[in-house]
Amino acid sequence: MIQRWEMDDIFYGFTGNWIMQEAVLASGCVDLFACDMNCSLPLDPAYAKKYKFKLIPVSDLVAFEGIDERLDYIPEKAEEQAAQLLQMAIDNFKERRQSVEPVTDLPVKEAIVGFSTESILEALGGTLDPLLDAIKNGTIRGVAGFVSCTSLRDNGQDVHSVKVAKELIKRDILVLSMGCGNAALQVAGLCSPDAKELAGPGLKSICEALGVPPVLSYGTCTDTGRIADLLFAVSNALGGVPIPDLPVIVAAPEYMEQKATVDAIFALALGLYTYVNPVPTVTGAPNLVQLLTQDLTEVTGGLLNVDTDAVQAVEALAAHIEAKRKKLGI
């Protein structure tokens, strides 16, 4: 990791996004699942019963039918509560191991993660000039803020997200990824230096020069605001170019959560061209649809694009980037 904690025997990475919990729990290797808000599934008790692990809600926002034992998180008692959860898992080990055959030797991949505005600056030698030069001379056509959930609404898990990301890097567009979609790209290998082979020639050359993948893992969905820091840094480095005029786009190929809605509005308010899929449930409000997909360009400079076809969506994103490059004369 470039930022935050180093990998060790205690924290050994993660397995993917929230839907992946089904595969993890079904591995038979889990003794306790501490369920926080937001990403716990209603069917978790069925897995707990079959695979003999303890299911412990740790937030008062989480409840399961038939599960009475819980340990709601108290910040002041975090260390004590962690010890309690660990002891519960240890106590459960014998029962699980006697009745469940674990699935082991699953494939493991490595990813470079933990990027931030600060770490990107460090990788570039303390200045944005190498990145700006690459954008100006066309080696990198633009930058995509990839902020996505994961959804089974109209595709297989992460299928649409991975396809959109591959289409972006193929067109020499650098991807900064966040959220559950970020986990999808890590699992797909796009946050590995080897993924440079999937990038266009310009982006590939940058990856080789800096030793970075074509998709830079920027964190979780709650880290989205940090990408604004980079936008402002780029804007200032270019002499105050307005953010709506930058060759930058936002993509949420599998949005689902309420936080994704907030992120999209945040991007539109900044004046960014924003792509979302599946089709939002606002089509019954024609005035809102017109505002987001047409009129907003005259308000903030932002625009919402909705497209269920990954290739068509990326073609529109790339066209927007090229239009901004032309406006800037680069």
Rank of each mutant, 00 (worst) to 15 (best):
M1N: 12
D9L: 05
Y12C: 14
T15L: 11
I19V: 13
Q21W: 08
E22P: 00
V30I: 15
F33Y: 15
C35K: 01
M37L: 12
L41S: 13
L41Y: 11
K52R: 15
P57E: 03
D60L: 07
A63H: 12
R70Y: 15
D72M: 11
P75V: 09
E76K: 11
K77A: 14
A78M: 11
A78D: 13
Q81H: 09
L86M: 07
M88I: 07
M88K: 08
F93M: 14
E95V: 08
R97M: 11
R97W: 04
D105K: 14
D105R: 13
P107H: 10
E110Y: 08
G114M: 03
F115K: 00
I120D: 01
L121V: 04
E122D: 10
P130H: 06
A134M: 05
K136F: 09
I140L: 12
R141E: 12
V143K: 01
F146N: 01
T150H: 06
S151Y: 01
N155G: 09
Q157I: 13
Q157H: 14
K170C: 00
D172W: 04
S177R: 00
M178N: 09
M178T: 11
N182P: 02
N182Y: 08
A183M: 14
L185Y: 00
L185S: 02
Q186T: 08
L190G: 02
C191M: 10
S192W: 05
S192T: 05
D194P: 01
P201Y: 03
G202R: 05
S205G: 10
S205Q: 05
C207M: 08
L210A: 06
V212Y: 01
L216T: 01
C221Q: 08
D223M: 05
T224N: 06
D229L: 13
A233V: 05
V234D: 00
N236I: 04
L238P: 05
V241L: 10
P244E: 07
P244N: 07
P247Y: 01
V248Q: 02
A251D: 07
A251R: 10
K259M: 06
T261W: 07
T261R: 03
T261F: 15
G271D: 02
Y273V: 04
Y273G: 03
T274H: 02
Y275K: 02
V276M: 06
P278I: 02
V279F: 10
P280R: 01
T283M: 14
N287A: 15
L291C: 07
G302M: 02
G302I: 03
N305Y: 13
D307E: 14
T308D: 15
E315C: 10
H320D: 12
E322K: 08
E322W: 05
E322D: 15
R325V: 05
G329P: 03
